[in-house]
Design a protein around this nucleic acid. Structure first.
Length: 420
DNA sequence: AATCCACAGGAAGCCCGGGAAC
DNA sequence: GTTCCCGGGCTTCCTGTGGATT
């Protein structure tokens, strides 16, 4: 054992610090890093700028909706263009302010309005809109007041707008797209960003026509384009000659399989390089990419599973128990039967089947299971449920860590109740 | 063509907790 | 302290549905 004062020069970090690093700047390989240029998005940037330049001329830009799959560069392009717009606005003394709202995190009308309102606060002001308590129309009134007092053009960007509409309806969009009627000294335009081409089907026709004044489609990147992006970023972030043969191509190919997701490609390359560095390898090789792929999968899924609410864990356990018993394509009723037994076993009240059906759908949305609605003719309509947790993850262990009683659910035997 | 299954999933409403205003 | 508002979790009630079976 080391005693205080003994071998003072040794420190557990010394070894890592002296190890040769592969990175020049790791931040550049993060998907939220904003690069100086965005390859293969010239047309989209032009379309956005052509519209938003109106703000610099004192006019109101059209509202826009941007469509495209995850990692197609919608958010990156928008924040890039908005940054440039704000800079030019300052230069020309025509104030423009963009406000980004991620509707996956901020997903109710009240929260979006208060978030926008609070991001318009001057640094000396302290009267924040509370996160709950006010009537929504008061928050809206406060927002108008703040916009008018600050003047200029406001570009409100609603990222993942489809999520918001599905959850909270279109009241908010109705209010936001009619902001200009209430504003006296300021102007506003709304940019919606959606992964789902069809989300406007849920909208009131008036909102649809106001929001969809200009639609921009972002096509997914193909493998070649992903390679360009990776090359551009790796030149800036990695040391020279550290990438082995075919590493970029492999990252791009794997990400292209994931519907051309640039985020995925960048994460893959960064984690691969970290893996290589960790193992003391001077080069990133293809096997690092493979192991990075596994680690990313596991890193994404582990916290999702461990943070599931207790009832949701029981539902997931019921699905896993069915699978452990050798069943595939499990029906809602079968899951529910096991679930009620499991609840009894751990002494919890069982929720209704309607609720459990909803919980199954949300497990599907989280990507832990696939639940496909099918019709089995005379034998009714149901969901066909399968878990899709990768082999290298042990969901039971993750759940047991936060809720030990789950282990009892698995150790008991429900076999006799299921189809077997 | 009619029937029927096993649900899906929408709508309304209840309850609770957190917070503001009076 | 009371009243009002918002949001989340949940139940209850209900209508809708695709295709095998009759």
């Amino acid at each position: 054992m080391l005693r205080l004062g003994e071998r003072m020069t040794d420190n557990i970090f010394d070894g890592f610090l002296s190890r040769k690093t592969l990175f020049k700047n790791k931040e550049i390989l993060r998907h939220d890093y904003q690069p100086q240029s965005l390859p293969h998005r010239k047309t989209e940037i032009e379309t956005l700028s052509f519209n938003l330049v109106e703000a610099l001329k004192g006019h109101i830009p059209s509202n826009m909706t941007l469509y495209g799959v995850t990692g197609a560069g919608k958010t990156a392009v928008t924040s890039f263009v908005c940054d440039e717009l704000e800079k030019k606005g300052q230069e020309l003394k025509r104030p423009v302010q963009s406000i980004m709202v991620n509707c996956r995190q901020i997903d109710t009308q009240y929260r979006v309005l208060s978030h926008i309102g609070n991001s318009l606060l001057e640094s000396h002001e302290i009267d924040e809109i509370p996160f709950t308590g006010w009537p929504t129309d008061r928050v809206f009134g406060e927002l108008i007041k703040r916009m008018d007092s600050r003047k200029g053009v406001f570009v409100i960007v609603l990222d993942e707008i489809d999520h918001l509409v599905r959850k909270a309806g279109d009241d908010l969009l109705y209010n936001l797209t009619s902001l200009n009627a209430s504003l006296n000294h300021a102007r506003a335009c709304v940019i919606g960003i959606s992964n789902d081409l069809k989300f406007t089907d849920f909208l009131d026709p008036r909102v649809r026509s106001r929001l969809g004044q200009l639609d921009v489609i972002f096509n997914p990147y193909d493998a070649e384009q992903l390679q360009d992006i990776l090359r551009q970023r790796s030149n800036l972030s990695l040391n020279e000659d550290v990438l082995g043969d075919g590493v970029i191509a492999l990252c791009a190919a794997l990400a292209a399989q994931e519907h051309g997701d640039a985020r995925c490609a960048l994460d893959l390359l960064r984690v691969s390089a970290e893996k290589a560095e960790q193992s003391g390898s001077p080069m990133v090789e293809q096997h690092h990419v493979r192991s990075a792929q596994h680690q990313i999968e596991s890193d994404q899924m582990t916290p999702i599973i461990s943070k599931l609410p207790s009832q949701q864990k029981l539902v997931l356990s019921s699905i896993l128990i069915n699978e452990k018993n050798g069943l595939r394509n499990i029906q809602t009723g079968e899951v529910y039967a096991i679930y009620t037994q499991a609840c009894r076993y751990v002494g919890q009240n069982a929720l209704t089947q309607r609720r459990v059906s909803g919980l199954i759908s949300s497990l599907d949305m989280l990507g832990l299971i696939t639940a496909r609605t099918i019709s089995r003719g005379r034998y009714g309509r149901t969901k066909e449920i399968n878990s899709c947790i990768p082999q290298n993850i042990d969901p039971v262990m993750i759940m047991v860590e936060s809720e030990p009683h789950i282990e009892d659910v698995f150790s008991s035997n429900y076999k006799h109740q299921s189809r077997l």
